[in-house]
């Protein structure tokens, strides 16, 4: 038996919004410690990893590990039926072929239950190695979203170069070129830790997709190391995260 209750549907809506552009379907792996999900996009260029520890939930019960294969489009449709300030309870029996979502209005005067058919997804799990990133940058999530949007105007390819001087985003195309550089701020809005400078090239379209998670977090963490995927991490309060990994572009 699995049961998890969140005080606000809004955060769940935001989590699904952060996933659904990159994934159509996904399996939530529920255990007694919380919920995990990991999936590659269709073209296997990026990987998204979601972790919600049980402390994130108002109520959490999971007697036995259970995998819930969900169609994210269908889940979005169900979430549209709920108000952001409704409480939501997700329930599934052991070996169930459906999941139940119950919404309760803030004043408890309205309840609504929905059933969603579960999918049997054959999802491949990848081992994500522990990586020491040479450059770790924290910046406001809205700033990162703005940079990705502005870069997209110029080119499909974005170079991210990080050194002690700052982090620089560059894009150049037929129209011209764009360079945006952020330095560390004294107020701590932007922090930049650099062991070795790193410069890598990425597909801007994926970076833009990752910024769908912007409403979830004030700050985004970016990790860069030579010849490994970029890490873009959005914390979910103190109880979890969405991490996106993006394979760099490499010389032909």
């Amino acid at each position: 038996m699995f049961e998890a209750r969140l005080a606000s549907t809004l955060t769940l809506k935001r989590i699904v919004d952060a996933l659904r552009e990159i994934l159509n379907q996904s399996t939530l792996d529920c255990s007694d410690t919380g919920i995990q999900m990991q999936a590659m996009d269709n073209s296997h260029v990026s990987l998204v990893s979601l972790c919600l520890r049980k402390e994130y939930f108002e109520k959490y019960k999971c007697n036995r590990n259970i995998s819930l294969g969900l169609d994210l489009k269908s889940l979005t449709k169900v979430l549209k039926c709920a108000n952001g300030d409704d409480a939501v309870t997700i329930k599934a029996a052991d070996k169930a072929d459906k999941v139940e979502l119950s919404f309760e209005s803030a004043g408890k005067e309205r309840t609504a239950d929905y059933e969603l058919r579960l999918l049997n997804l054959d999802q491949e799990h990848l081992a994500i190695p522990e990586t020491e990133y040479n450059c770790v940058v924290h910046m406001p999530a809205t700033e990162f979203a703005r940079i990705c949007r502005d870069m997209a105007t110029f080119s499909e390819s974005v170079v991210i170069a990080c050194s002690k001087e700052g982090i620089k985003f560059s894009a150049s195309g037929e129209m011209g070129a764009a360079n945006i550089k952020l330095s560390e701020t004294t107020k701590g809005e932007v922090s930049i830790q650099v062991d070795e400078p790193v410069a890598l090239s990425f597909a801007g379209r994926y970076l833009s997709t990752f910024t769908r998670a912007t409403p979830l977090a004030e700050k985004v963490k970016i990790g860069l190391a030579p010849d490994v995927p970029l890490l873009v991490e959005y914390p979910i309060e103190d109880y979890g995260y969405i991490r996106y990994y993006l394979a760099p572009k490499v010389d032909d």
């Binding site: 990987l47 491949e124 990848l126 081992a127 995927p229 394979a247 760099p248 010389d251 032909d252």
Partner: peptide
Amino acid sequence: KKIQGSIRNYFSAK
């Protein structure tokens, strides 16, 4: 010219 790498080249199957 740069080409897009695959995430599978970096993360192996469990």
